[in-house]
Write a protein that binds this DNA or RNA. Sequence first.
DNA 1: TCTACTTACGAAGGAGCGCTTCATTAGTAG
DNA 2: CTACTAATGAAGCGCTCCTTCGTAAGTAGA
Lengths: 383, 383
Amino acid sequence: MANLRGGDLSRLRQLNSLTAIRALRGAGPLTLSALAERTGLSRPSMKEVADELMELGWVEEVPPSPGTMGRPARRYRFRADSGCLVGVDIGGHNVRAALSDLDGVILAETRQPVLPDAPLEERLAAIDRAVSGCLALSGRSAADLWTVAAGTTGVLTPEGRIAFSAAIPAWTGLDLAAKLREMFPCQVLIENDSRLAALAEARRGAAQGARDVVFLHVGRRMGTGLIIDGKVHRGFGAAAGEIVMLPEARWYDAPEHLNACEVVPEGTAPEDAAGYTLAAARDGHPVALAAVDRYVDDLAVGAAAMVLVLDPQMVVLGGGFSRSADVLLAPLRERLERACMRMPEVRASTLGDECVVMGAIDYAADHLDRELFTSDAPLTPLR
Amino acid sequence: MANLRGGDLSRLRQLNSLTAIRALRGAGPLTLSALAERTGLSRPSMKEVADELMELGWVEEVPPSPGTMGRPARRYRFRADSGCLVGVDIGGHNVRAALSDLDGVILAETRQPVLPDAPLEERLAAIDRAVSGCLALSGRSAADLWTVAAGTTGVLTPEGRIAFSAAIPAWTGLDLAAKLREMFPCQVLIENDSRLAALAEARRGAAQGARDVVFLHVGRRMGTGLIIDGKVHRGFGAAAGEIVMLPEARWYDAPEHLNACEVVPEGTAPEDAAGYTLAAARDGHPVALAAVDRYVDDLAVGAAAMVLVLDPQMVVLGGGFSRSADVLLAPLRERLERACMRMPEVRASTLGDECVVMGAIDYAADHLDRELFTSDAPLTPLR
DNA sequence: TCTACTTACGAAGGAGCGCTTCATTAGTAG
DNA sequence: CTACTAATGAAGCGCTCCTTCGTAAGTAGA
């Protein structure tokens, strides 16, 4: 029962303009005839719409494709380059950023290392450098920025404050949304990093095409992201997916099975320990295999809870340990098979370390689409 | 990226007609001027739309309201009576049905007792009697039926077959959707009963207005229903909410704590046992209180899992035991408070035994709305 | 009962948008 | 150079909504 407003002829024109933009975004440059066919409009009407969109700067003409029969047709394309979106992944050890055009096509990526216990200002400066780097690499300026979407570890509030972050001590309590709004003169969105990773996997990664996805971040810390009906599910208080808090789900201490294994050399840094165990398990070392078994036993409990609650089409394994998915997937599948009502597909992440920035870009693009296609306001001129 | 079709003037008229219907459904009979103001159309245009809707039978005129200044204004109302929806709750011991108009306003209700181990044909006959009864009570005929929505216990397939039902042995394997389609010459929808109860609570019960709701059916069997973003969440394989299958969630055997309590008199039928324990607990009987404590301990584990995964705005306690919500709510809240990241509101069901039929009606009404307001087909004449 | 006031009705005229039709134009193929 | 193909551009039509204005049908007060 959303919209009670009727419309007049300008509303119809607006609808048709948006339909044309949608068609162009979906299928590259199109001729007038192709556009008319796709939208169901007549050619003359389509022409008028296209002229108006050119006038406003949303669309531009490209040279006709040569070598066709008959008179060469005008071709139009959506000006995805008339603005840009930035995705930021603010992690403990790195700040990553990516810049894309309005279609979400990545144009530049940067990474800025930062220490987990670095003071607040230092991390914010790293964010600034990462974004500036992307702008420089792609030859854009801050004025071209339409949206900055940031993903970070920790529990967020619906307004974009950091309620708590174990990985980044200086982060807890920060009003990140406000800080970023000071830094960037554009729309700013904040989300949890696992949720953005889940979105990226659902849009361009292992779970492409699935509407309901459970993303499991397996690493030194456990995290999850839910995609429900194609959208990020954040929950009423932006606290969805925190099953790690439930002792009975056995997630909190699960990574210890890998860290405390005796195949790990004496004096290994805690963040590297699990890697040894997973590598040894791959080589068939029985002690390591037993540790992995205990780890997956625990992992499967929380995972089964999520699968039973949501019945997703797919489960995607991401995060640091998912580099060893070959060791983890089979036993995880086996345990889920036993526990679940209907077994979902279980896959390893295909996007790796860029998962979160990609998800941030997709999140920003989604937001833009919603603004564009659900608003009642007429299209505004660009530039 | 749903709709790539543009539209001509008839599409605009269609949009405005639907907007008018929506406005009329939302706010009773309206005068032309009021309608015009709400929809943003001019009065003359509104008149034309209204004339067309009257012609098609979707709208009719009602006598002007007397005692107003100025010339009396024509008033129009949506003809919610031009069709009807039926909701059916197929339980172990009863088949309930309710009939509503197209706005979901209940016009008749019936109940048909049936034995849990009754053969298939007998239960189907009870469904037929329950629905016929509603039609008779409201003076309608089967030809007025637009949609029949049925909720039943058990695990369903996405197509409306019964994959498994513990409560109704004869039910397992049945293609219920097909059977009901044979019986009723209209749209037929099948859903799990707990999901429909959840929908009813979210629309007209304890969780009114909440977009994300976890409904817990507590009784001799445990069940859940999820409302996410205002819609029933069924999952990819229609198996969402089956957390009772997970041993670590401690739901499966939870009711035993109440059944096996020593305050239950010797020889009590198993379905009545828990009632004694809950009643004794209300009276402060220490043994019963201890049993309730153990029960809620278990209940809270699965509930916390769902809350942590989804972060709903509200948790609603329904099902047979929710009649003793006064005994259960406080301890459940206390345990959730400890386990959860963000504490949702926890309330008792306000709809009681009619929960499922109401939910079925709401489900049918939702389906109708989607068909009406998202289709590209022009409005068809009624009658 | 009559008059003033209020509010809705209905008809007329105009503007915007999309449609169809048809002669024209700019290419390729032989 | 000619035939063929496919897009272009202009003209005319019909529909939907808009604004404006005189008229009609009630109530309130003298």
